[in-house]
Simulated scan of single mutants.
Amino acid sequence: MRIGLVGYGAGGRLFHLPYIQAAAEWRIAGVVTRSPARRAQLVEEAPGVPAFDSLDDLLDAGVDAVVTSTPPGTRRELVLRALARGAHVVADKPFAPHLSGARELADAARAAGRVLTVFQNRRWDTDLVTLRGALESGALGTPWRAELVLDQDDPGTLESGPDDGLLRDLGAHVVDQAIQLFGPVARFDGHLDWLDVDGGRVDVGFALGLHHGSGVYSAVSASKLGRRSERRMVVYGSEGSYASRMHDVQFDRIMAGERPAAAAQWGVEREERWGVLSTAAGERRVPSAAGDYSAFYRGLHAALAEGAPLPVRLDEALHTIAVLDAARESDARGRSIEVETA
């Protein structure tokens, strides 16, 4: 099947193209970018893949699906246009700034009879995949509560538009991770860190309390201005606890110039950074599972070609947006918020 990529900034170059290239089920039909510098990078990184000036030019060339990897403010129009012209669509997260906008895009996909899904790639982070395996093994017993931290010392990548902010950036990832582990959120407590930027306010950090319908409580947080980088996952259960501080191993290897299509092994953490499972039997290190974002694209192909479940269902993406809306409302009102059904 043919897939096209709209946008060739950091997202398109580092988080989409390498993993599409690693999924042999797809043929890359082209990339939309007008930048001469990025077109030169495309020639180097994907020889033979054509560059197009616009989404319509790409669609005219013939594609089964398109990936939108452009700034959030441009996403709505691109998704609607691609759906209207008969393409399936993968949208970067968050695929809309609010639940009302997300529902509009979901309705458009249903009306067009096309698939709309969201690139929640961090479901395939090495640390999350390893943690999921530990939970599924039953070694922790009944999970009670969890802490998920995703701090990045990266203030230069904060976006400060009216529909931007860290909650819609890293928050869309870490909230989705918690929901994948422990199920939908019923009630929510949120605190956002605010900064005045260019005459407006933007959230630059957050600490969120998710009360899952399953009974698990998860505390998730992130910052890009704390001058620290940390990935931490801790889960407490009736039989013990699990804790990990793995690196962002896939991103590290991409930045080192490696690519999953050419790697014998991908997304595995070094042994000295494996997570630790603590139970009555003592402590033991849990071997790293293999994280691989290309699993999203392989799963998408299976869904479109074979009717398999989507790797990220639209109802799941809508629920994540509903939780992010609840976070802003909780912060503004200073109290717990019931999460609206998506």
Score class of each variant (00 low, 15 high):
residue 236 Y to Q: 12
residue 230 E to I: 11
residue 210 L to I: 03
residue 272 E to H: 05
residue 274 W to H: 13
residue 194 W to T: 09
residue 179 I to N: 00
residue 264 A to R: 14
residue 171 G to E: 02
residue 227 R to G: 05
residue 193 D to T: 13
residue 197 V to D: 15
residue 209 G to F: 07
residue 217 Y to R: 13
residue 161 G to M: 05
residue 241 S to I: 04
residue 178 A to E: 07
residue 175 V to W: 06
residue 153 D to V: 02
residue 171 G to L: 05
residue 218 S to A: 13
residue 182 F to M: 06
residue 268 V to R: 15
residue 244 S to C: 15
residue 146 A to Q: 07
residue 166 L to G: 00
residue 204 V to H: 09
residue 243 A to E: 13
residue 270 R to Q: 14
residue 232 R to V: 11
residue 254 I to L: 14
residue 222 A to Y: 01
residue 231 R to K: 15
residue 256 A to G: 14
residue 167 L to E: 03
residue 237 G to M: 03
residue 254 I to A: 12
residue 164 D to F: 01
residue 163 D to W: 04
residue 147 E to A: 05
residue 210 L to D: 03
residue 190 G to A: 09
residue 181 L to I: 06
residue 163 D to G: 08
residue 208 L to D: 03
residue 244 S to N: 13
residue 221 S to P: 06
residue 252 D to Q: 15
residue 150 L to F: 07
residue 272 E to S: 07
residue 247 H to K: 15
residue 195 L to N: 14
residue 170 L to H: 06
residue 199 G to K: 08
residue 147 E to K: 00
residue 256 A to Q: 13
residue 258 E to L: 15
residue 204 V to T: 12
residue 252 D to C: 12
residue 256 A to C: 12
residue 140 L to A: 01
residue 260 P to V: 08
residue 240 G to F: 02
residue 166 L to I: 01
residue 142 T to N: 01
residue 201 R to W: 14
residue 228 R to K: 10
residue 145 R to D: 03
residue 223 S to Q: 09
residue 263 A to K: 07
residue 179 I to F: 02
residue 227 R to D: 11
residue 217 Y to P: 00
residue 158 L to V: 06
residue 167 L to S: 03
residue 256 A to V: 11
residue 173 H to N: 09
residue 248 D to A: 14
residue 163 D to K: 00
residue 142 T to A: 05
residue 196 D to R: 15
residue 263 A to M: 10
residue 217 Y to V: 11
residue 251 F to Q: 14
residue 147 E to S: 05
residue 144 W to V: 10
residue 218 S to M: 04
residue 144 W to T: 06
residue 170 L to A: 05
residue 240 G to T: 02
residue 203 D to L: 08
residue 256 A to I: 13
residue 211 H to K: 02
residue 150 L to E: 12
residue 176 D to R: 06
residue 188 F to L: 15
residue 165 G to V: 03
residue 235 V to S: 06
residue 259 R to H: 12
residue 199 G to D: 14
residue 250 Q to H: 13
residue 172 A to Q: 09
residue 224 K to G: 04
residue 267 G to E: 11
residue 178 A to Y: 05
residue 257 G to D: 09
residue 227 R to C: 05
residue 162 P to H: 01
residue 237 G to F: 02
residue 268 V to S: 07
residue 207 A to D: 14
residue 179 I to Q: 06
residue 228 R to V: 10
residue 165 G to F: 02
residue 224 K to D: 04
residue 156 G to R: 07
residue 206 F to H: 09
residue 190 G to L: 05
residue 163 D to T: 10
residue 228 R to S: 11
residue 195 L to Q: 15
residue 254 I to D: 12
residue 208 L to G: 11
residue 147 E to T: 08
residue 171 G to N: 07
residue 230 E to Y: 11
residue 145 R to E: 02
residue 187 R to G: 03
residue 218 S to V: 01
residue 215 G to Y: 00
residue 146 A to Y: 01
residue 142 T to V: 09
residue 171 G to S: 10
residue 266 W to E: 10
residue 238 S to R: 03
residue 190 G to V: 02
residue 271 E to P: 14
residue 265 Q to I: 15
residue 248 D to S: 14
residue 170 L to Q: 09
residue 222 A to W: 00
residue 148 L to K: 00
